[in-house]
């Protein structure tokens, strides 16, 4: 599905509107006050040797005059942990639940912006306040149709705001699933995914058709490889293809049977406007109607519960 029913959109937009108007909802204070053991544990895990966080002697003479917590730990203090207690409700919960219900079950964080008004000191116990700041959409994204939901958490000590975080997620409708979401047989025709090709399959999972681009000389290349044959650079980047293409050649496979695919099926070499060719199945088109020069557009098909394959369907010229 590529659109949102107007009634569904209206319901989502109105809910978001009401939750934005609700403003900020305070949550529970940090379970533990800011403390040295948790700071040291964090610093060791991060490989952070900054003495301002753990070395009392340095800290006393340092810019803060005492031990302070790493500012990026701000969210850590109010994480729910494993205690089993239900986190305090926030204005975001309803909105995310409504999006799930409307089929926007996929979620991916897109932005995290933290502002630190001051560093936290040992013994302080921040309290989070959460407000929904916006919801925009529906937007067509590489992952599928979705809404961007943005919220802001402000942490207070007493009533002094000490830090803020803007957080944005994309809630999206995952690429089309079969009628039953039950586990399917694994698709038997798997590619080898390695260091040189993982970016492509990762892109496919996100609804992007990626073409390797040499970060040195800009040459596009498909199939990709570890070294640029033009300039020898091993710095690899990629561009996201427009998704348009044209059938350059094709075959209709009848025999022998191929596990995982029903015969007859069409495999094409597709010429992309970006200048490279790629092999893929042509779907949603009778084999007899496929022809060289036919315009096609990429879509992404879940072959099983894990594996997504880019396929091509007829497009308007």
């Amino acid at each position: 599905m590529t659109t949102v029913e107007p009634a569904v959109h209206r319901r989502l937009a109105e809910l978001a509107e009401r939750r934005i108007e609700l403003g900020e909802t305070r949550g529970l204070p940090a379970a533990d006050p800011v403390n040295l053991p948790m700071i040291r544990h964090w610093a060791e895990a991060m490989g952070d040797t900054n003495p301002a966080y753990t070395d009392e002697e340095f800290a006393a003479a340092g810019p803060h005059g005492e031990i302070v917590a790493p500012p990026a730990m701000i969210q850590v203090w109010t994480m729910p942990g494993r205690g089993g207690g239900r986190p305090a409700p926030t204005p975001i919960d309803d909105v995310l639940a409504a999006l799930d219900e409307a089929g926007f079950t996929g979620v991916v964080a897109t932005d995290c912006r933290q502002t630190y008004h001051r560093y936290l000191r040992l013994g302080e116990r921040p309290v989070p306040g959460t407000r929904l700041s916006g919801m925009t959409g529906p937007k067509t994204t590489a992952l599928g149709l979705g809404y961007f939901v943005t919220w802001v958490i402000t942490w207070y000590v007493a009533d002094e705001p000490v830090a803020e975080m803007m957080f944005r997620v994309l809630k999206f409708r995952p690429p089309e699933r079969g009628p039953a979401a039950a586990a399917r047989d694994p698709y038997p025709l798997r590619p080898a995914v390695g260091r040189d090709t993982a970016f492509f399959w990762e892109g496919v999972r996100q609804g992007e058709l990626r073409i390797q681009k040499c970060a040195g000389c800009g040459t596009l290349r498909h199939p990709p490889g570890p070294v640029c044959p033009s300039c020898r650079s091993t710095e690899r980047a990629h561009v996201v293809a427009s998704g348009r293409g044209e059938v350059f050649s094709y075959v209709v496979h009848h025999a022998p049977p191929v596990p995982g695919l029903a015969t007859p099926f069409v495999v094409a070499v597709v010429q992309l406007p970006e200048g490279v060719r790629i092999v893929g199945n042509v779907v949603e088109c009778e084999p007899a109607k496929v022809e060289i020069g036919m315009p096609v557009r990429v879509t992404f098909r879940e072959m099983d519960d894990e594996f997504v394959l880019p396929v091509w369907s007829p497009a308007e010229s």
Partner: peptide
């Protein structure tokens, strides 16, 4: 991710620097 970005910059800037904000696109 936020912690490693902070650590990366303070490794370079030194322990007397104060981080004011981190803005990351994921």
């Amino acid at each position: 991710t936020m912690g490693l970005v902070e650590r990366y910059v303070t490794d370079w800037a030194g322990p007397r620097a104060r981080i004011r904000g981190i803005d990351v696109r994921l």
